Amino acid sequence: MQAPFSFPVLLLIAILVLYIINSIKILKEYERGVVFRLGRVRESAKGPGVILVFRPVDQIVRISLRQEAMEVPPQDIITRDNVTLKVNAVITLRVVDPTKAVIEVANYIYQTSQFSQTTLRSVLGEVELDELLAHRDRLNQRIQTIIDGHTAPFGVKVISVEVKQVDMPESMLRAMAKQAEAERERRAKVIHAEGEFNAAQKLIEAAALLSTQPISVQLRYLQTLTEIGVEKNTTIVFPLPIEMMGLLNKSLSFNPAEEKK
């Protein structure tokens, strides 16, 4: 009894089955596959899910659509007011067109990194140090717009740019510390002067009010003696009537020569 299939036929079937199994590719939800057939790219990227790639006729390049954070190396920058700085940044990007990211550029990560370094130096070199420190959000937006204009032709979207760290020379840090200290002293002196001015105004108002009722001065005098007596000390307080002080002032201002005249 002959076998239904000869050995060469069985071998051919096994090779065909293995080839088909090997041609099955599974792409994750965040992956897309750019397929080249005989060197020509297919119309659109494939995936996610199961796709067939028949090698060696087809070749596939996997591209991730997830966001990627890329750190820009520290750059030596001279600001418009001639201050030398070292500035680095973090860029968040993602691929929006996998086909362009494969066929338009050799390495979109490296290309974006180079654009980021040159843009960071050119933009921050046009501003002064105070503007860099005070308006960082506006500069981040400007850098993002410029880099995104460079990366759009090869299907990469720059989502955000954040200036991460600004390293200044020690001499500049000391100068800024002195400036901040001087500003604090100026504010303290102004506040102290305003307090003295307000206190003087209140004293004038209080004196004018007390002068309307002479007995109020006596009451205030007795209240002050009561406050002194509360403290445990060895101070001897001798109460002197206010009337005696008035008589003493009159006697001191009396001039006999003027009286004879």
Rank of each mutant, 00 (worst) to 15 (best):
V123R: 02
E43R: 14
G33N: 00
N88F: 04
E71Y: 11
H150L: 07
Q141C: 02
A200W: 06
P256M: 05
D167W: 09
E131K: 11
L133I: 09
D97Y: 03
A200K: 12
I146Q: 06
L209Q: 14
A180G: 10
L139R: 00
D81F: 12
T79D: 07
E243A: 08
V17H: 06
S23C: 03
I204K: 13
G33C: 03
E126P: 03
A175I: 09
K25I: 04
D167I: 07
K46L: 15
T151P: 00
T84M: 06
Q213G: 05
S122G: 07
Q75R: 08
E29H: 15
E231G: 05
A175Q: 11
K261Y: 13
L18I: 08
G155N: 02
S216V: 08
K232M: 07
I91Y: 05
S23V: 01
G155V: 01
I147R: 00
S211Y: 10
E181D: 08
K250L: 10
I159C: 01
S64D: 10
K178N: 13
M245H: 09
I103A: 08
S251W: 14
S211C: 08
S251P: 08
Y30Q: 08
V90A: 12
V166Q: 02
L124W: 00
A134P: 02
E205W: 02
A207K: 10
L203K: 09
P73D: 02
Q144N: 07
K100F: 05
A207S: 13
D81T: 12
P214E: 04
E243K: 06
F154V: 02
N249K: 13
T235D: 04
E258Y: 12
E227F: 11
L27Q: 01
S113F: 12
E258D: 11
D81N: 14
I21S: 12
Q201E: 15
G39V: 04
N107H: 11
F197N: 15
K25D: 03
R55Y: 10
A257V: 15
T226N: 12
I26D: 01
Q117E: 12
N107Y: 10
V123K: 03
K250P: 02
P214Q: 04
V217Q: 14
E71P: 04
T145W: 06
L247I: 13
Q111T: 12
I26K: 02
F197I: 15
S64W: 05
K46V: 15
N255A: 03
Q2L: 14
N233V: 05
P239H: 01
F115M: 07
I143T: 03
V50N: 05
T119V: 06
M245F: 08
S64P: 05
